[in-house]
Design a protein around this nucleic acid. Sequence first.
DNA 1: TCCCATAATGTTAGCGCTAAAATTTATATC
DNA 2: GATATAAATTTTAGCGCTAACATTATGGGA
Lengths: 344, 344
Amino acid sequence: MANSPSQNRSRSKGRVTLSDVASMAGVSSMTVSRALNDPERVSEQVRDRVREAVEALGYIPNRAARSLAGQRSYSIAVVIPSVSNAVFSNVIKGIYDVCSARGYEMLMGNTYYSVQQESSLIAKFLTHHPDGIIVTGLNMADSARTLLQGAGIPVVQLMEVGESEPIDLNVGISHRDAGAAMARYMLDKGYRHIGVLGAQMDHRAQRRIQGFIDVLAAAGRYDERRIVATPEPSTVRLGGLLLGDLLAAAPDTDAVFCINDDLAYGVIYECQRRHIRIPQQLAVAGFNDLEASSCINPSLTSVSTPLYEMGKTAADMLMRRLNGEHIEQPVVDLGFKLQARDSA
Amino acid sequence: MANSPSQNRSRSKGRVTLSDVASMAGVSSMTVSRALNDPERVSEQVRDRVREAVEALGYIPNRAARSLAGQRSYSIAVVIPSVSNAVFSNVIKGIYDVCSARGYEMLMGNTYYSVQQESSLIAKFLTHHPDGIIVTGLNMADSARTLLQGAGIPVVQLMEVGESEPIDLNVGISHRDAGAAMARYMLDKGYRHIGVLGAQMDHRAQRRIQGFIDVLAAAGRYDERRIVATPEPSTVRLGGLLLGDLLAAAPDTDAVFCINDDLAYGVIYECQRRHIRIPQQLAVAGFNDLEASSCINPSLTSVSTPLYEMGKTAADMLMRRLNGEHIEQPVVDLGFKLQARDSA
DNA sequence: TCCCATAATGTTAGCGCTAAAATTTATATC
DNA sequence: GATATAAATTTTAGCGCTAACATTATGGGA
């Protein structure tokens, strides 16, 4: 009972602390700290005694104390539109794999595609004083941009490149180019009455459509009636509904570019129900090339985007910056690949 | 220059602190703390002066210091198999919505379906001294269980109920019952040569299969050849491959229960390629009732599970516990619904 | 008038850890 | 063996905040 920690009326919850470990191991608490965080700098025998004491006492380090004393949090903040979106869950995995391997924690938050939410989320996250922050996209509220610029930590803007000057680091693809590439592909294949289906029109989706439309217009094939877009969240069901709208407005449409694969699946299912043959009567293309796109019937022509790599690259750049390395190339365009399949 | 903060050689990074705000507002730092965290207890004029000073200085609170001084972290840890799984992303959204509304941060980590990873993740998270923790499932390594029991914080075990005694709180559904319900449904519909396709056989998937098989066996309809399972991660493509294996082993199979909807989609696509008519030649059922299941052709019979509600309920229970409320019902079974559609 | 309750604010001390400087101990060099 | 050098460890002093207690104003009611 004599050596039970903190029987006094202090504020402590009676947790086992570094100094408990230290007195058990017969060294100073600083030595224990080093034995745990920088073992090289401690003699082997001390290291062993510390390890024993840690195990015997069930010591769990306190990160809040560590952050406060060390003036860094060993965490990075990740601000994305929505975790429950297959696109972002792949990106997150890339970030996660790098961060967890380096001992960094991830603070994750959803903006639900709202710039206001994004700003308040960033403000909230900065109270953790993360060592770095990854945000989605290049366009954000001025308030958010100001916060990030003043935070004094590395910032990675993820998903898109080329639309505007990044705050700091930037990894992604050119959504405008990707949209343009798809338009050229469809024109090359001989389609002339080409429609576009869009939902949850975030900045990237808008850029894809813009790139697509610009090419159509340059070829004299732009027809406003064939652009069907809604701010609603994108779902498979919605793809079918939007196809209905498109065909009602422009029945002679012979090809349709869906702003993402989910919509395209919905379009394919709707065509099956309407007995519209793909691609003979209607060509269909998607975007992101999700796993199912190569399995569906007909297999879906889509734009393959390096989602996992984007996350991984963003986190890698952040880690290198945190290690004090110079980043020779602050903007990285990872490129895309048009995956031609049976649907178009 | 006299009032610029921390020009000395201290360890501070020159951040704006509470006492900077305090001296600008002409009050003590404790009063600023109260003005920010418990505004009711501070006079209106002081509140205003503090707010002005905060804005003028761009003060950002330091959560590490707050956690350390307050002996709580205002964060909850969430341990799930994989964020990049549609099932869990729905659950996460439920947790996230509750937590962020209450000012709690979420620490999220992936176990990638490994109990070892789960244990080390839990150990890592406990260093943050989260105010509560949500983990997936009832079965975990003994070491993890011991850690959680000793952590002295509320624990919610999520996704499944009824298999064993929970550590603390428990929200989910009975996967065994759900599997059994599906088996009974198929038997009622007259199918007699029923197969099962499984992948990424976590504890829940195993329970679903077990419940399914038990009912088949009781009806004298269990045939080992028709159980095709793999530990590989579940994908749409894999569904098609497993169907091939099943039909090779037992060509007279007339119905198949897929352990999740992704596999079922793959089965449907493969049947389309093989010109197997669903449900006439082969009935197909899935599990989880993802959004696309009602849109695919034929629409997929599945078991609808309250994913978002599970997350929300788990977080709610945690919050109530953290507010000191008594939880009269520590185990909550949210139930499931067999969604009969055209595929079976 | 005094007394006591209540509200508003201030003071003190310390949460558990680590940076930096100070000290001790081991090792190499002549 | 003395000296210089490096390695291992300890000491000191906070990091920025809040719990707990102390103090000071404010307002009735006797």
